[in-house]
Design a protein around this nucleic acid. Structure first.
Lengths: 220, 220
DNA sequence: GTCTATACAGAGATAGAC
DNA sequence: GTCTATCTCTGTATAGAC
């Protein structure tokens, strides 16, 4: 979502894209380490020391590539916004609601599985009031939700689905799907499994799609 | 939920319940301040300084009432576990599924509204791997979910509702309802409102109940 | 470009005056 | 019981050697 916000955030935070094989590789190593630490301790709770240790690089190296802690955090966030809500982005009222929402729900669960750390960092940031994202995201999000809600409302007006509130439907989809990334620990406890497998995620997809799609009158 | 876990956590963390009007009042003030800070910055990101300042008490006062930072955090968590999943706790297969789940969903949304900070602290703790709750909660949660899942399965076997996976149904309810507390910031942005009102929460309740209950074949 | 050494602020925690 | 002063450690960030 929200290409605009992502672009502005990149401009504000990201280091210039210089060449340099070593630089590029080191930056990648640092970003990966930072992702793990930020997901585990949040922005304030994460220390550059811990990141440096995990990355296997001296601390000052980090501050050389990224100006400061906020800069590094911004780079991580920017990477995350890159891949939000790919599908559903260009949907119009002419598209098929079942197809569209079915794909959207499944893609969001798959994202939860493939990028749990990104989802967690984003979640912590939002829970804590999104101090670093507010100015980049608040307006864009409102627009994005408004656009999508209008499409859903058009489907409702055309009698293609139940008259449910479109925005709260979106919230339910977000909450239900992101749960598998953000609250993965709880899910694992509940299922008493150290790790979820293909079948677990398939069951998650199928259950959510069944309930939500049938629940809005799109059973098939 | 999980009275056992709550009790053990209390034993491990909470200070003895001494008398003393001053003590009791100060502890309450501290806990309230701590709740705000922990919800905003997580465990590691919160400083005793910040809590003391917010509480209007000297830092050493905090360490006098609670032995250390972990002790204070544990006391906050203990307060939170007090009020989890009250309804749905004593449900049996003989109860009416529509009534039960309808009440459960609505009560969880209302809890999100009345105790957003508690929900957020709990959420951050889980997202970060629940390092302070693992030994108190992991087993209990598995049992709780197992019990509830068996009740739902009995409803399914009796043909009272669709054959959806009970555990994932619970996850959907959790994710969908807690979203209004944990991601309240995002919800406010999406709706472009500084604060949600009665109508917003009523719409949330109605929408979620409609979709989920109809989605599992419990329309009325 | 890279890393060691270090400055300085803030953290949690304790000792001891009141 | 309560608060001031302080210890020690870790935090971010920078200076400067290599």
């Amino acid at each position: 979502m929200v290409d605009q916000a992502q672009k502005r955030l990149k401009e504000a935070f990201q280091t210039k894209e210089k060449a340099g094989r070593i630089r590029q590789q080191n930056e990648a190593v640092i970003l990966e380490a930072a992702e793990i630490e930020f997901a585990q301790h949040g922005f304030k709770g994460t220390s550059l020391n811990a990141i440096a240790e995990r990355a296997g690089l001296p601390k000052s190296n980090i501050l050389y590539y990224f100006q400061n802690k906020v800069g590094l955090y911004g780079a991580v966030l920017s990477d995350i916004l890159d891949m939000w809500n790919q599908s559903f982005n260009d949907t119009t009222a002419d598209d098929d609601p079942f197809e569209t929402l079915n794909t959207y729900i499944r893609s969001k669960i798959r994202y939860s599985r493939s990028h749990p750390l990104a989802s967690k960092i984003f979640a912590i940031e939002i829970i804590q009031g999104a101090p670093h994202l507010k100015k980049f995201l608040a307006q864009e999000l409102h627009n994005w939700v408004g656009d999508r809600a209008r499409v859903i409302q058009a489907w409702i007006d055309a009698g293609k689905m139940d008259p449910v509130d479109p925005v709260h439907l979106l919230f339910l989809i977000w909450g239900g799907t992101q749960h598998y990334a953000d609250f993965g620990t709880q899910v694992q406890w509940a299922l008493d499994k150290p790790e979820l497998g293909d079948e677990d995620f398939k069951k998650a997809e199928d259950t959510l799609c069944h309930i939500i799609l049938k629940g809005i009158g799109l059973a098939r």
